[in-house]
Design a protein around this nucleic acid. Structure first.
Length: 234
DNA sequence: AAGCGTCTCAACCGCGCGTTG
DNA sequence: ACAACGCGCGGTTGAGACGCT
């Protein structure tokens, strides 16, 4: 026979996770690691299905998650990877961003990048120019620059000098590609910052990034590093 | 201040693939 | 070889936050 069912649907809690549930799940995984997601809720004392626990851990509780907004360099990289890998490869795309989840990248694409590309008259699926009869390229560019200037204001107000390193990147952003030649090609190779160096390696088919989490979770000893995390929970 | 529309993102759903018995 | 299942993935949804009038 096959395996046991993933979970009993009846009586399981759904919806937003509470701090207490987060605490239980975090505590359990830190102490026991992840053997089988189906057993995790039962052993951790949670009335959730294993799938839900897995999602919560991957998208929210993992200690190696990078918090905060995506940088402009990351955004450019997403666009390039999307143009190369296509729409249904979020996990593949996310694998190039240590500390970022596929869900996060997917959300970011759907809510922001898609919109920006459209404003520039680019088809978010094909990355090629769409019919420009409704909005001229100049109009689109003007609208986009307005958005960017607003975003810059916000960025610098909230993060100050921390983001100043992206000034040069902004000058040769992916969005500066002429529309006539706007397939998201090797624009980043023009830049000299660290992100682009890494990115060039991906283009060449040699992915330099390694997901530190994959290595870390494979080694039970590494869990000791996070043994003090419990103190952060009330 | 209130009401309404829009945006964001955490979470769910369903499917496909690989694995297990 | 086959059926049942776990897991991971992409698409979608809906609640809360935010902004505008």
């Amino acid at each position: 026979m096959g395996r046991q069912p993933c979970c009993e649907k009846e009586g399981l809690k759904r919806g937003p996770w509470t701090i207490e549930e987060d605490h239980k799940l975090m505590n359990f995984i830190l102490n026991n690691g992840i053997q089988c997601w189906r057993l995790v809720p039962k052993l951790a004392g949670l009335r959730r299905c294993g799938k839900s626990c897995r999602l919560r851990w991957i998208n929210y509780l993992r200690p190696d998650l990078k918090r905060g907004a995506l940088t402009e360099a990351e955004e450019d990289m997403i666009i390039e990877l999307h143009s190369r890998l296509g729409n249904s490869r979020w996990s593949k795309i996310a694998s190039h961003f240590p500390g970022r989840t596929d869900n996060e990248i997917k959300n970011y694409w759907n809510t922001r990048i898609k919109k920006k590309l459209r404003l520039l008259g680019l088809d978010p699926v094909t990355h090629k120019p769409v019919d420009e009869t409704e909005n001229s390229a100049a109009e689109n560019e003007e609208i986009y620059q307005h958005i960017i200037s607003k975003e810059k204001e916000t960025d610098y107000q909230t993060e100050g000098a921390a983001k100043s390193g992206f000034n040069e990147m902004k000058n040769i952003s992916i969005f500066d590609v002429p529309k006539e030649n706007s397939e998201m090609g090797s624009i980043l190779s023009k830049t000299t910052d660290e992100s682009s160096v890494n990115f060039s390696a991906i283009i060449d088919g040699h992915d330099q990034f390694e997901d530190p989490f994959q290595n870390w979770i494979a080694s039970p000893l590494q869990w000791d590093v996070f043994s003090n995390l419990e103190e952060n929970f009330p």
